[in-house]
Amino acid sequence: MTIDQQPVRDRLDYDGVSPFPGATEHHAVGRAQLGLTAAIVILPLFALGAAIVLAWGQGVALTDLLLAAVFYVVTGLGVTVGFHRLLTHGSFTALPWLRTALAVAGSMGFQGNVIDWVAVHRRHHAFTDRPGDPHSPYRYGTGLRGQLRGLAHAHLGWLFTGDATTSAERYAPDLLADPAMTRVARAFPALCALSLALPFLAGWAITGTLHGALTAFLWAGLIRVALLQHVTWSVNSLCHLIGNRPFTTRRYDRATNLWPLALLSFGESWHNGHHSEPTCARHGLDRGQIDPSSGLIRLFERLGWVSDVRWPDPERIQRRRTGPLSPARAPNAD
């Protein structure tokens, strides 16, 4: 029995501070899945070490940094705008070609196939910081030891347990019924390979050397993947522990706004705003909050490529304000 199938009683009995029922139990993960996950997580970190050695004494080529930035933006926005705001929450409606293009770009971010990603994230919203949440940092309780263990689980550990397995039939039946999305999901391994091959080929084309191709592969390929992964995982972990909570959320939902991650996460770290208004196309609900993802959605809207965009309703947002900033640990009432 996976955690999303736990009896409702277990979730109703949760008091907001205790470890989740069965928190120390983890379901077996197949060796193939475990090995693949480990490779996706660990290899980019080895690449960082290799890149540092290669750059020692001569620095990093501007070409590599520019390519890394381009691929980071394309794949990152594929995750935030495509996987998250469009496909998970339906914050807007996109033309079929754009919907598919965003799903392809997100798949190149090495965060799992589009259907599984959406299923896990919808489950996260269904049980945020309660039993059933696949990556809550409160899994082991709210004591210091439990929080440290929970932080590791929420950031990375959940990927290596049965918590990463979520029923797509239950949480993403709409995508399973979409032929374009099922094709993109099946193509995930090929898209990952393409995500690494393109920087290599671009580096070769620009520099005309194998060395230039390899350094582009490291910086715009593997290291770019590592950075995007850890920024995304930090939203799962840090953005439920550190930061401000200016808006009300569901009971026990401790999602926070963490401004230092706003630019790198393309606006995803305004996590309290998002959990307060999950279907809103803009997560930075206050003036001055950087949200590049919503900026791209606005551009798409002006080009006529998206419609039915769910922009913030000022009156509704005002009603959801908590007044004084709430600490991350304080559970809300329903």
Score class of each variant (00 low, 15 high):
residue 193 A to P: 02
residue 193 A to D: 07
residue 193 A to Y: 12
residue 194 L to A: 15
residue 194 L to F: 10
residue 197 A to F: 13
residue 203 G to F: 08
residue 204 W to V: 04
residue 204 W to S: 07
residue 204 W to K: 09
residue 205 A to S: 12
residue 205 A to H: 05
residue 208 G to R: 08
residue 210 L to N: 05
residue 210 L to A: 15
residue 212 G to Q: 09
residue 212 G to A: 08
residue 213 A to T: 08
residue 213 A to C: 11
residue 215 T to V: 13
residue 216 A to H: 08
residue 219 W to C: 07
residue 219 W to E: 04
residue 220 A to S: 12
residue 222 L to V: 06
residue 229 Q to Y: 12
residue 231 V to L: 13
residue 231 V to N: 08
residue 231 V to K: 07
residue 233 W to V: 02
residue 234 S to C: 13
residue 236 N to M: 09
residue 237 S to R: 01
residue 237 S to W: 01
residue 242 I to R: 07
residue 244 N to G: 06
residue 244 N to Y: 04
residue 247 F to D: 00
residue 248 T to S: 14
residue 249 T to I: 02
residue 250 R to G: 13
residue 251 R to L: 04
residue 252 Y to M: 05
residue 253 D to R: 01
residue 254 R to H: 09
residue 254 R to L: 03
residue 255 A to F: 01
residue 255 A to M: 00
residue 256 T to H: 02
residue 257 N to E: 11
residue 257 N to I: 01
residue 259 W to Q: 15
residue 263 L to C: 12
residue 267 G to R: 07
residue 269 S to R: 10
residue 269 S to T: 11
residue 272 N to S: 11
residue 273 G to S: 05
residue 273 G to I: 00
residue 277 E to K: 13
residue 278 P to H: 11
residue 279 T to H: 15
residue 279 T to L: 10
residue 280 C to F: 05
residue 280 C to Q: 10
residue 281 A to P: 10
residue 282 R to P: 04
residue 284 G to Y: 04
residue 284 G to C: 12
residue 285 L to S: 03
